[in-house]
Design a protein around this nucleic acid. Structure first.
Length: 423
DNA sequence: TCTCCGATTAGAC
DNA sequence: CTAACGGTCTAATCGGAGA
C-alpha cells in the first residue's frame, strides 16, 4: 500500500507589515505604502501599489525618496510590537483548523490538512476567518511537500483567478509540468541569488528544469541541500513538519545606531541594552550561555572614513543567564576593543554555546556563585507586564544618541493602553 | 589520516 | 543643509590545526 499524499498548506500573509499598518489606518488602503527596516534604513515590506512603482525589497529608503514624492508613496518605521501581536492572533486562528501546524516565520504557517475533507472550502474558510478576525489578508498554497506548498502559495498570490487558494495536488502530471515550466527557478524555497546564477550555467532556469535535472550531477555540483530541494519538487518529502520549535543555538542582539558614536560610555550604554535583551531571550527559552561575544563596527558604507570591525569573545566562567554578569563581561570586552579614533555605526552582543538550564553541570571544584536568579525573574516579570524597558540595568539609558531612528512609527495599537486612539 | 573547530558562504524572512 | 543602506537565525562547506 502506497503512502497517501500529504496535503500540506502554507498560509502566508500578504505584504504582512504593510497589512498590519493598514488594519489601523484604513485611509491608507489604496496609497502606495512601504515599511522600513530598523533605523528607517531599507524597505522590508511593500504594498502592491509600491511594488508596481518598482520599489525593490531591501532597497535603501533614501533611494526611493524621489519616487515617493512623485507618486505620494508613504513610508512607516517598523513597529515590531504590533506585528508580533498581529502574528500571534493570525497563528492562533490557523491552529484551530488542524491538529498539526508549524509557525515558520512571523507571517507564515504550515498547516497539515492531510486527511481532512473539502480542502478548497476549508482553505477559503481559513482565509475568510483570518481576514474577518484580524483584517490581515492571507493566501493558501497546498502541496505534497513543504517546498511545493510554498510554490503553490506563490501561484495563489500571483493569479487573481485562484482567489487566494491553490492546491498543487489537484493537478494532473501534464498540468504540473506545464506550471513548473513557467516558474523561474529562483522562486523555489532555498534557491537564492548565487544558486540561481550557478544553476543557469548548467542550463537550469525553470522549476521544471530543476525537478528533472540529472540527480547525481546536481548532487555533485550543488550539495545535499539542493538534492533535498529536488526531491521535494519530485513530491518526496525531505523537510518534515517541526512540531516544537527547537531552542536557539545562538542569540544575537545588535543595532545600527541612529548617529555615529565616538565615545566609550555611549557604546557601553548601547551594549547594556543589547545584553539585557539577549539575556531576556535566553531566560525565556530556559537556557544558559557559556560564551559571550561583543563586536563593534564602523560605517562600512562610508568609504571615506577609516574602517574598524573588532570582535572579542570570552568563555564565561560558568554558563549563565544573568544580565548583570554578562554585562560586566560586555563592558570589559568593549573597553579592550574601543579605539577613540573611530566613529562607530553598529555594535552587538552574541551569546553562544547555549544549553538548557536543566543540563547544567555545576563545577565540582568551585563553590557555587551567588546568582541573581530571583532578581532576573522579577525583572522579566515586570518588563513583560509593563513593557520592555520598565526596569533597566544602571548603565542603560543615560545616553540616547545611539538609539535608532524611527521617525515614522505608528502607535502600538494592540499592546499599549497609552496608544489606543481616543475617538 | 581523521577529526574538530572557526570562519565563510548562502539562504530565509 | 547633508547624509542617509536591517536584524536574526540555521546549515553546509572548507581549510587549517592538532591528535
Amino acid at each position: 500500500m502506497g503512502k497517501a499524499v500529504q496535503q500540506l498548506a502554507l498560509v502566508d500573509c500578504n505584504n504582512f507589515y504593510v497589512s498590519c499598518e493598514r488594519v489601523f489606518r484604513p485611509d491608507l488602503a489604496q496609497v502606495p505604502l512601504v515599511v522600513l527596516s530598523n533605523n528607517d534604513g531599507c524597505v522590508v515590506s511593500r504594498s502592491n501599489e509600491a511594488k508596481a512603482l518598482g520599489v525593490k525589497m531591501g532597497q535603501p529608503w533614501f533611494e526611493c525618496k524621489a519616487l515617493a514624492e512623485q507618486h505620494g508613496m508613504l513610508a512607516m518605521s517598523s513597529n515590531y510590537a504590533l506585528y508580533a501581536d498581529m502574528s500571534n492572533r493570525v497563528m492562533q486562528i490557523l491552529s484551530d483548523f488542524a491538529p498539526r501546524h508549524e509557525v515558520y516565520s512571523i507571517d507564515e504557517c504550515f498547516v497539515d490538512l492531510t486527511g481532512l475533507p473539502k480542502l478548497r472550502e476549508l482553505s477559503y474558510a481559513m482565509r475568510e476567518r483570518v481576514g474577518q478576525w484580524t483584517g490581515i489578508p492571507v493566501c493558501v498554497g497546498i502541496g505534497p511537500t513543504k517546498t511545493l506548498a510554498k510554490l503553490a502559495n506563490h501561484v495563489a498570490k500571483r493569479h487573481p483567478r485562484s482567489r487566494g487558494v491553490f492546491n498543487y495536488n489537484d493537478l494532473s502530471d501534464a498540468q504540473k509540468s506545464h506550471l513548473l515550466q513557467r516558474i523561474p527557478v529562483d522562486e523555489v524555497w532555498g534557491v537564492g541569488r548565487q544558486l540561481t546564477r550557478r544553476l543557469s550555467q548548467h542550463g537550469i532556469t525553470t522549476v521544471l528544469d530543476l525537478r528533472d535535472a540529472h540527480v547525481a550531477t546536481l548532487r555533485a555540483e550543488f550539495g545535499v541541500v539542493m538534492e533535498k530541494t529536488q526531491r521535494e519538487l519530485q513530491e518526496i518529502a525531505c523537510i518534515e513538519m517541526q512540531d516544537v520549535q527547537p531552542a536557539r543555538q545562538q542569540i544575537i542582539c545588535s543595532r545600527s545606531f541612529g548617529q555615529m558614536v565616538t565615545e566609550l560610555p555611549v557604546l557601553q550604554d548601547a551594549l547594556s541594552t543589547f545584553v539585557a535583551n539577549a539575556c531576556a531571550k535566553l531566560r525565556a527559552q530556559n537556557s544558559h550561555a557559556a560564551v559571550m561575544q561583543v563586536f563593534l563596527q564602523t560605517n562600512r558604507f562610508r568609504r571615506d572614513l577609516p574602517q574598524y570591525m573588532p570582535s572579542l569573545a570570552v568563555p564565561l566562567p560558568e554558563p549563565t543567564d544573568d544580565t548583570l554578569e554578562v554585562n560586566r563581561w560586555a563592558h570589559h570586552l568593549c573597553h579592550r576593543m574601543f579605539k577613540p579614533e573611530y566613529a562607530y555605526k553598529k555594535a552587538g552582543v552574541v551569546l553562544s554555546e547555549i544549553s538548557p538550564v536543566t543540563h547544567r553541570q555545576g563545577d565540582l571544584l568551585e563553590p557555587v556563585r551567588a546568582s541573581n536568579t530571583r532578581l532576573m525573574v522579577a525583572l522579566d516579570t515586570l518588563n513583560q507586564r509593563f513593557g520592555r524597558g520598565t526596569v533597566k540595568v544602571s548603565t542603560q539609558g543615560a545616553y540616547t544618541q545611539w538609539q535608532m531612528r524611527q521617525e515614522r512609527k505608528s502607535p502600538n495599537y494592540t499592546t499599549d493602553w497609552q496608544d489606543i486612539p481616543m475617538v
